[in-house]
Design a protein around this nucleic acid. Structure first.
Lengths: 173, 173
DNA sequence: ACCACCATGTAACAGGTTACATGATTAA
DNA sequence: TTAATCATGTAACCTGTTACATGGTGGT
């Protein structure tokens, strides 16, 4: 079975031939909000997909730029992606360093705890701005149906976090 | 600097002497909601804390039960914990397999995508019930101030998720 | 002159997981 | 008699990160 990162890369390749470098830029501003592998990880995954027969590599010589490797998804790749997508999603055990620190807040500095909450709120406010900006410049096509779901999730998350943070700040003040 | 798991364990030890086994049970139903190391990980962390001088081990012989190791936090341990708690929280890059699958939903089965959303909603509804139950049986003491913050976060999260899921289900139907 | 962009990859390390291994006691 | 609870640990593996390594082009 695929790992999530392999599936993410296949998913991006499903839209067209791309290099590792291209993928990076595709990721930020879209999937990057909820799945952001390190650069080196992308370059590690691509050859693996090739050796599994899920993608094909094509060497492209360039003169003014360094040469590059373009990857294209295969029929087997599309099948593997579809299979992965349809499998049940495991419940994701939430990891949150913020909550961990707050939970033990009594052993720390009250001022620091307050600042942790404020920081997270600022991040959420920033996220909200970015998502609204993306929303504004996105044309609502048929292909946008699913990505729209994820943006909406982000918005709902950001707003819930802001509400919580305001309440928490009041409690801690 | 401590890892989050080391800090979590120290945090629990700060409340009193405990065995690895005890810690496991402390974790589920409290920190476990946002930080749940594997059992083997707890047993790996404890000796490390001892060798760092942050905890002390005490062997307790038992007759009707297997022997056990009790761990107690040291003064250095409390200092290390406080230091870790007060450090700024890094922005946590969100990982969500659910959103990843949804984002590429076009390449999968629509029925499966709908089921993914429904599944996550059920989990959130369950979480909400659990958190309300904990809330109900908790006496609002001074020590509860910080943990209360994390429960409230969970509630806000669960409710936001349920709202989103209902909306998403309508979109996909 | 300097910085950002294009472009790929390796190596070392970190932080975790699952499975293996053991075995008595007690409640249903 | 079957299963859960008590109780600890090791070993193999996985997935990912950061740091190292290289070097031309084009804009300010």
């Amino acid at each position: 079975m695929l790992t999530a990162t392999e599936a993410a890369v296949l998913g991006l390749l499903a839209d067209g031939e791309r290099s590792g470098y291209d993928l990076r830029r595709c990721i930020e501003g879209s999937v990057g909000y909820f799945w952001a592998p390190a650069r080196s990880q992308i370059y590690a995954v691509l050859p693996r997909l090739v050796s599994l027969g899920l993608a094909r590599r094509r060497h492209v010589r360039q003169e003014t730029r360094p040469d590059k490797q373009l990857y294209r998804i295969t029929a087997a790749g599309r099948a593997a992606l579809a299979d992965w997508l349809d499998r049940p999603v495991e419940p994701e055990p939430g990891h949150s360093v913020l909550l961990l620190k707050l939970f033990f807040g009594d052993y720390g500095d009250p001022e620091a705890m307050l600042e942790h909450v404020r920081g997270r709120r600022r991040e959420a406010e920033q996220l909200k701005v970015e998502l609204l900006a993306i929303e504004a410049r996105t044309t609502k096509t048929e292909q946008d149906r699913y990505p729209a779901l994820t943006r909406r999730y982000g918005l709902e998350y950001a707003e819930a976090l802001i509400r919580w943070a305001k309440w928490a700040e009041a409690q801690l003040r």
